[in-house]
Structure formats: C-alpha cells, structure tokens
C-alpha cells in the first residue's frame, strides 16, 4: 500500500462549488511531489484533504495507514501529529520567540522540557536558524519566518511534510533558499513532501514529480515534470 492514497475523491462544497472531481492519486514514502495548478483549480482542496482540514464528499483518503475519511473530529490530532504543515502565511505566534514557536506543538503534546530542547535545537539547525532562538517573528525577514514555520513542522519528525504555497510570499532568491531547506529535509530525513505551488521556476528547477490539477481533475501526473 502506498504512503498516500486518494481513491475517486470528490469534494463538493456546501455552496455547490466542486473543489475536486473523482481524483485518484498515489504517493510513495519518501517522494517529493509538486501539486500545481491555477488559482481555484482544486490543488488547495487536494492538500486540505490530506491533513483532514476538508473531508471528501465521496471517495477515500489514506495517509500513512490512517483512513482519513473515517477519522472522527476528536481524533484528527492523531493524524496531524504525523504530519508537518508549512503555510504560505507562516502562521507563527507573534508573542512567542522562535524557540517557543518551534517548541509549541511538543509542549502541547505534553513533552518534558528536557525532551523538547534537543528536538527544537535540531529542527532549528536543520533550517539554519540556530542563532535566532530568542528573536520574535516580527524581528525576522519573510524567509526566516518561513524557516521557523518549517522547523515547527519538522520538530516532531513527521513522515509527511505538506507545504501549501510556502514560497508564495517570498522573493525568488529567498524562495530558492526555502526550497533548498525543504529538499534537504526530503533527502536527509526521508520525509515525504507534498507541495502545492504555482511557482514555475521552482518546479522546473527541481525536476520532481509533478501533478497538475485543472478544474478539479487530475490533468497530468509526470515524473521529473515541469510547469509550462
């Protein structure tokens, strides 16, 4: 069984808009997959199905052996602890320092302070921010804030890293740096990466598997693909 498996997934929103129509997709462990498409093409819906922010109207979604469709609301956290999520808008807590932001998930799971520290420092080292532990988000550049977000996503050593347009708010140079960080995580830790983006340059440079979503349908799925 594949690490991620979507079978005949459709998502029709309450207002009648079709987010996804009969999509099927398999992703193996350790893969790096770009999900690309125009705005409102359905790529965000697809991504949200993976971390159970949305539930498919029909079809099934399996992530790391968990049947996401059958997951009760009160048990979603069990899935999310196995996944790291990186957002376009970073979603950092402004009143917490870099260290506290990265430690936040672990603290809320009830980890000991002594257990938290090495994990946080290792995650920050991975993203190259070990010297900024005491800074607050507003003291950091956009790229640095995104690195903190990545560190928070990988601090619990997840098997899957979901990135929803992580470079959407960054300039090309910083985007490249962020992509290098994510690519390293994929290579060094063996973390599966699923990334929604419409940054052509990044997709073309990385030469990874590309899934194109168009009008709610999976239009193309190519290994070492590109974005035209």
């Amino acid at each position: 069984m594949e690490f991620i498996e979507l079978k005949d997934c459709s998502k029709i929103y309450k207002n009648g808009v079709t987010g996804l129509a009969n999509a099927s997709l398999s992703i193996s462990k350790g893969e790096f997959v770009f999900i690309i498409g125009h705005t409102a093409s359905g790529k965000s819906t697809l991504i949200k199905l993976l971390y159970r922010e949305e539930k498919p109207t029909t079809g099934s979604v399996c992530v790391g052996g968990i049947d996401v469709t059958k997951l009760r609301n009160s048990k979603i956290y069990k899935l999310r602890r196995k996944i790291g999520i990186v957002f376009q808008d970073f979603k950092l807590l402004p009143k917490l320092t870099v260290y506290e932001n990265v430690a936040y998930p672990l603290a809320s799971y009830g980890y000991k302070t002594s257990e938290i520290r090495p994990l946080v420092l290792s995650a920050l080292e991975q993203v190259g921010l070990k010297d900024k532990t005491r800074s607050f988000p507003h003291q950091l550049s956009g790229g640095e804030q995104q690195r903190v977000c990545i560190a928070r996503a990988i601090v619990n050593k997840p098997r899957l890293l979901i990135c929803d347009e992580p470079t959407g708010n960054l300039d090309p140079e910083t985007s490249k740096e962020i992509m290098d960080v994510i690519s390293d995580i994929n290579k060094n830790l063996g973390t599966t990466v699923v990334m929604a983006t419409h940054d052509k340059e990044i997709v073309n440079r990385m030469k990874k598997r590309v899934v194109v979503v168009k009008e709610g349908l999976i239009d193309k799925d190519t290994q070492k693909g590109s974005y035209k």
């Binding site: 971390y51 609301n73 009160s74 979603i76 999310r80 996944i83 999520i85 807590l93 809320s108 619990n156």
Partner: peptide
Amino acid sequence: KSEIDIMRLVGTSNSV
C-alpha cells in the same frame, strides 16, 4: 482564534 487554529493544525488534541 489564530492561536487555536495553529494548535489544531499542529496536532494538539481537542481537550488540551
């Protein structure tokens, strides 16, 4: 609200 959203997304259980 934003803090609660983040908690949900990083896998904090509902009771916590």
